[in-house]
């Protein structure tokens, strides 16, 4: 479903990603681990087209999308949520989801009717609001809801585009343990045919949802395998999991 071939990016003398090759099957849930500065978010930015790689290819559903801009890849079914909330703060929760759903259903450019009143948009908003548990807040301004709800909405806006592949950059960033557990249920309830690529620092969540774990260190893939193998990997413990294991 999503493949990278030797994806590389440097900023000056610093190699942020080095020959990263990944292959995600349809419906696979892969978590990317790695210490701060390992190149995880830069990898995401290259996948969605926000940063152009120096070398390598990105293939989505069999199509080479390396030359496509962000919106072109989004139209083909690649969606993302951000580590820092990237919402439409001046709008309500329903309008946030409605904007994304309007794009999905091709109403984003019409001048004849209110896109938010269309049946298909309404259905998508309702479905996604239930998926990400924001239904009680539909009327609320985004700036008025709690941080946790905004994190859920962040994922909801990405989901409302009905993606084939959803990239989530630290969905539980900044939320407490209780909310983090809620995210576990949320992720498990997502359709099984949706391919997920998640950057996550919450190890419990990462090991609970992942089919596969990839570890980046200094921009390189240093581990690629099952969660069980990851738990047993000495290399992983050395570079990343020591603190987690001790705890």
């Amino acid at each position: 479903m999503l493949e990278t071939r030797n994806l590389s990016k440097s900023f000056g003398a610093i190699n942020v990603t080095r020959d990263v090759s990944l292959k995600l099957e349809r419906g696979e849930r892969r978590v990317i681990l790695g210490p701060n500065g390992a190149g995880k978010t830069t990898l995401f930015n290259q996948l969605v087209g926000e940063i152009r790689p120096d070398k390598g290819r990105v293939v989505l559903a069999g199509e080479d999308v390396t030359a496509l801009p962000v919106q072109g890849r989004a139209k083909l079914g690649l969606s993302r949520s951000y580590q820092k909330n990237t919402l439409f703060d001046g709008l309500t929760v329903e309008e946030n989801l409605g904007l994304a759903a309007s794009v999905t259903h091709g109403h984003w450019h019409n001048i004849r009717y209110d896109s938010l009143t269309r049946r298909d948009v309404r259905d998508t908003v309702r479905e996604v609001a239930e998926q990400v548990r924001v239904m009680p807040y539909l009327h609320a301004q985004v700036s008025d809801v709690s941080y946790g709800v905004r994190r859920q909405l962040e994922v909801g806006v990405a989901l409302a585009t009905r993606p084939l592949v959803l990239l989530m950059d630290e969905p539980t960033s900044g939320v407490g343990p209780e909310m983090s557990a809620g995210f576990h249920d949320l992720l498990n309830d997502l359709p099984r045919d949706l391919t997920l690529l998640i950057i996550e620092h919450d190890m419990d969540l990462a090991f609970a949802v992942a089919d596969t774990i990839t570890v980046l260190n200094y921009g390189e893939v240093v581990f690629d395998g099952s969660p069980e193998d990851a738990r047993d990997s000495k290399l992983l413990k050395d570079i990343y999991l020591g603190a987690w294991e001790d705890a």
């Binding site: 989004a74 139209k75 990237t86 904007l99 999905t104 984003w108 019409n110 001048i111 896109s115 990405a158």
Partner: peptide, 28 residues
């Protein structure tokens, strides 16, 4: 209040996100 206007408002609030949703920003 139509799709075009709502997309434009979305762009004003968060151009990066609208692009990530698949909107052709300069066209809007």
């Amino acid at each position: 209040q139509a799709g075009l206007g709502r997309s434009l408002t979305g762009i004003m609030h968060n151009e990066q996100r609208m692009r990530a949703l698949g909107v052709n920003v300069w066209r809007i």
